[in-house]
Design a protein around this nucleic acid. Structure first.
Lengths: 121, 121
DNA sequence: TAATCATATGAACACATGATCATACGTTCT
DNA sequence: AGAACGTATGATCATGTGTTCATATGATTA
């Protein structure tokens, strides 16, 4: 079986620990999975979106409420809600003109808690 | 006590649910805290850094190993390690010319696991 | 001391991103 | 139907980000 660990193309270094690199390669999830994970965290990597999610921990809110809470443009809020919606983190419910947003994931709270735990040393 | 919920400055909408907005305001963590949280997730929001962290779950690695693993420039890896270092997510150990990086946080694994849980529906 | 190797750093560039403005869409009320 | 209101969307723009190239630093070896 041809094992091609020729990494000298991209790296001027000699691979010092081929055994470790090979072992890690076997354990690593697929690229697509890691990409998706990064995409998810990218959504969490913005203060506005973090605020929106935190707000929705407490209560279901309409776009207008969130806009008032954050002191941003209604447009900005709507754009960010779209991102959260696409990431399947929030869901919405229409009632006349109003649209009520709420959380659509049970993991977010725990992820945020762990994040907080890291921040507080 | 003067409660100034004049949000009409930024939003053309009428605040429909002042009670909810006020309640959420009380529960929300401080802005700085939310900012730091977003900053942390921003670090997780890149495929390269996610890969590095995942690799370090398995084993301590030198820069050269990581470079070979990811098929990137040594420079790129070094830059990203710097980011991870500043976020206090990895630590390093020097041995001669080599620098070995390893995890410096017990929360990352759990955060990633929760993230995976979200992705897999 | 000079050469070599592993890593770090700074500059430059292409690309992504978040906010705002203007405006469109859809619903309710007159 | 038309006006008013809540929300969504597209364009634009300033700013942030990740990679590469070139080079510096620091340690080992000849």
């Amino acid at each position: 079986m041809g094992d091609d660990r020729d990494s000298s193309e991209h790296c001027s270094c000699t691979v010092v620990h081929e055994d470790i690199v090979d072992k890690v390669r076997q354990v690593m999830p697929e690229d697509e999975c890691l990409f998706d994970l990064a995409e998810l965290f990218k959504v969490f990597g913005d203060t506005t979106r973090v605020k929106i999610l935190f707000a929705l921990f407490t209560a279901e809110m309409c776009v207008c409420d969130i806009t008032a809470l954050l002191g941003l443009t209604q447009s900005a809020v709507s754009h960010q809600l779209r991102v959260l919606k696409q990431a399947r983190l929030v869901k919405y419910r229409k009632e006349g003109k109003m649209v009520y947003y709420s959380l659509d994931d049970e993991h977010v709270k725990q992820i945020f808690d762990q994040g907080m735990a890291h921040i507080n040393h």
